[in-house]
């Protein structure tokens, strides 16, 4: 149980990475990237958790809080992630317009012409 969260993180990371590398479809690759990035979020947030603690918002009654720092880092990382995705999707739309395909191998073929 001590490491279960981290094992799931690894499983998700590898699934995401596999999708990015093995799939031909450009949209699918981005979904893989999203899974990979979310796995990183889970890693950080798991590191921050203190069992028996509460959300890091000060109240009179609470004495034990989870760590706010990784939360802050991941807030930033989520925003960076969605910004990257938006740009990537814009590129996908234009690639579809320019090549008539969003499959990796087909675009490679047409690039050479």
């Amino acid at each position: 149980m001590d490491f279960f969260n981290y094992w799931v993180v690894i499983a998700l990371m590898m699934t995401g990475l596999y999708i990015v590398m093995a799939q031909q479809n450009l949209v699918k690759k981005l979904l893989g990237l999203n899974i990979f990035q979310t796995a990183i979020f889970i890693l950080y947030i798991s590191v921050a958790k203190v069992l028996g603690g509460t959300a890091p918002i000060y109240t009179e009654s609470a004495t034990l809080y989870s760590n706010p720092l990784p939360h802050v880092l991941i807030l930033t990382a989520i925003v960076v992630g969605i910004a990257t995705m938006a740009l990537a999707l814009a590129l996908v739309v234009r690639i579809h317009g320019a090549y008539g395909s969003i499959e990796d191998d087909e675009i490679r073929d047409r690039s050479k012409q």
Binding site: V27, F41, I45, A48, G53, T54, H71, L75, I78, L89
Partner: peptide, 24 residues
């Protein structure tokens, strides 16, 4: 995991903006 701010953001991004852009 007590990360309420992160949950708020992830819900609006991961279940909101991201699928919306994808559908577009």
């Amino acid at each position: 995991m007590d990360a309420v701010d992160v949950a708020f953001t992830e819900a609006s991004v991961g279940a909101g903006i991201f699928p919306l852009l994808m559908l577009a």
